[in-house]
Design a protein around this nucleic acid. Structure first.
Length: 224
DNA sequence: AGCTGATCATAA
DNA sequence: TTATGATCAGCT
């Protein structure tokens, strides 16, 4: 099961096969240990699912299934099927904001085809007992794409004009720019108001919970 | 309760 | 250092 899926169909079959399993059962299947301190190994569930489905990209800034053009995202949900958290998309290129277009952006690249794997993951449920849900292969519809593009363009324009330090998580309808670092002391370079280099916190793009929630609701509406 | 800013582990 | 996988936890 650790080889990369050769087709979308094969990927979907693998995703279907793990639906309903607990993380304990899935970990047994791929022979990895559950984390001793799940609070600290925040990415463990996502990596377990990557391993189970045969994702290969590692920590490279590309899609999880480059051959298929598909990005994999685990999505923690509550028992009502509502997302519990925002979704990390990718790092923000603070020095190359000028001239980059939405079409060539890594946000669009990552989000053009996403295999969402919901996981029932309320904090009260021990990690071993959390349950894999039914995966959903999604592409943004016209409206979603327009919203994402508008957010991205506004945020990247601010970055390009040296205003990254003025951006907060309150900006963006669907897409947010938020800190993405080991801690708040980490610094990377960006441009300041006068075009000079400044040191600032690394940022990443995130999807708001409301956006992923709406996307799931649309999917379920289409099923009925 | 939900959201924003902060944080944790790991690989190359 | 920068990227991946994300969730934590305090504040409003």
């Amino acid at each position: 099961m650790n080889n990369a899926p050769q087709s979308i169909t094969e990927l979907l079959e693998r995703a279907q096969a793990i639906a309903g399993l607990s993380l304990q059962e899935l970990a047994n299947q791929v022979q990895i240990e559950l984390p001793l301190n799940a609070k600290k190994e925040k990415g463990w569930t996502g990596q377990l699912i990557e391993l189970s489905l045969g994702a290969t990209a590692g920590s490279k800034p590309i899609q999880d299934f480059p051959q298929l053009g598909v990005e994999l995202k685990s999505l923690p949900i509550d028992r009502s099927g509502r997302p519990l958290e925002s979704t990390y998309v990718c790092m923000t290129q603070l020095l190359h904001a000028h001239g980059e277009t939405w079409q060539q952006s890594s946000v669009r690249n990552k989000l053009s085809h996403v295999l969402w794997v919901p996981v029932l993951a309320e904090r009260s449920i021990p990690i071993a007992q959390r349950i894999i849900g039914h995966a959903l292969l999604w592409s943004p519809d016209k409206e979603e794409e327009a919203t994402l593009r508008q957010d991205w363009e506004e945020l990247m324009e601010a970055v390009a004009f040296g205003r990254v330090d003025e951006i907060t998580a309150r900006h963006g309808q669907a897409l947010q720019l938020r800190p993405k670092a080991a801690n708040s002391k980490v610094r990377t370079q960006a441009y300041g108001r006068d075009g000079q280099l400044i040191e600032t916190l690394p940022r990443g793009f995130y999807l708001r919970r409301s956006f992923t929630q709406a996307l799931l609701e649309k999917h379920f509406a289409n099923l009925s």
